[in-house]
Design a binder for these strands. Structure first.
Lengths: 207, 207
DNA sequence: ACCATTCTGGTACACAGGTACCATAATGGT
DNA sequence: ACCATTATGGTACCTGTGTACCAGAATGGT
């Protein structure tokens, strides 16, 4: 057989082109042609590697999700070996806030897909329902362990706290994306929240 | 002059058609023709009352914002005359969660616009920056007053708390829209948050 | 009564975007 | 060396969409 190109790499190259276009001009500006141009390939190539636009969009979403998970794992891996639960949670959530340009693009495109999923149920299932649920469970587990070690007050409900964490995090993220808040301000609010979570005894006002 | 129709009402009728289409099929499904059909008018009429699609989109956004403010005011107005700060804040935030179908559509379309605004700066200014800022100030003021009366612990930072409230609220809202959480679950998390805000003394774990 | 003005309808045009089709080049197994 | 297979390019077609154009109908002041 002929010049066997690495399909996976090609697909990744094209998917990243899509992400760049969507990050710059919005997901509505994503067309077969604009993606091809951005990725530096011909329109025909995009068609070749992705049967249809729908498939391209879906693949790009999966590509995004995979990349995100890798970054997440890397970030958590580089935590100093003995770390507090708070360190873990803070790193965990900081990764889910748009800080530098790269993560801004990521979260912008991700949110765009989320909005698409709101009127296109099947698209939502895995990435936008299972994903967040998994994250919340993961957080809740960490919180439970922190309660066992006494780092976190025992009176709190780990499940509710995990939901609250992801909610406040997502809310902060969109406020940054829309330009209402700076990334620094968002991180400050996040830290404020964590202060009151973990340091509830000291932080809570003398009643 | 001829049959003088009420322009404002016509525009409202068309704008509501746009909202229905966007709420059902997504903002990307909004076309001059689909809006005309949904509103029960001819394509030409939409063109007549709105110079261009861009103007239609912008007007519909303003229409949404106005309707939202009215509902907000109405909801706050029907609070029993002597009400606690918590009642106020809870009503305030509950209105910002998708509960029934009507508010689901509203928040879905609103969020769709927000995503558009992320790559179209000028569109964002008033509705998505000034608006949220105003809401947060309003909340912060209420919290400050609640601190003065002793209903809210004095040790909290009203500005940060207000930011946290809007963030958690928005985060819960999108999780509902995307189908991850039921409206009831979202309200439960919201109440949990308020419990810990206002009842910090009792709710906070005995340290 | 009349007609200028306001409102409404239908339709055509230009363009963009997704998809399909036809060709050609490169390659590796036999 | 050959050719079937894989990869790539160019382009044409059809549909949908925003906009422009050409009318005609309805009405209220004079």
């Amino acid at each position: 057989m002929p010049k066997t190109a690495d399909h996976d790499q090609r697909r990744a190259q094209i998917a990243e082109g899509l992400v760049r276009v969507a990050g710059r001009e919005g997901l509505h500006a994503v067309t077969m042609r604009s993606v091809a141009a951005e990725a530096g390939v011909s329109l025909r190539l995009v068609q070749y590697y992705f049967e249809s636009k729908a498939q391209l969009m879906h693949s790009a979403l999966l590509h995004l999700e995979r990349a995100s998970n890798e970054r997440w794992a890397a970030r958590l891996a580089e935590l100093p070996s003995p770390h507090t639960a708070r360190d873990y949670v803070e790193a965990f959530l900081a990764e889910a806030l748009p800080s530098d340009e790269r993560s801004r693009v990521f979260h912008l495109v991700w949110t765009s897909y989320a909005v698409l999923a709101m009127t296109d149920e099947p698209l939502a299932e895995q990435p936008f329902i299972d994903g967040p649920n998994r994250l919340e469970r993961q957080l809740a587990d960490v919180l439970r362990k922190a309660q066992a070690t006494g780092e976190l007050p025992a009176g709190l409900d780990p499940d509710h706290e995990a939901a609250r964490l992801t909610a406040v995090n997502h809310g902060l993220g969109t406020s940054v994306l829309v330009g209402q808040r700076t990334p620094e301000a968002a991180q400050a609010v996040l830290r404020y929240h964590l202060d009151h979570l973990f340091g509830a005894e000291e932080a809570a006002p003398r009643a």
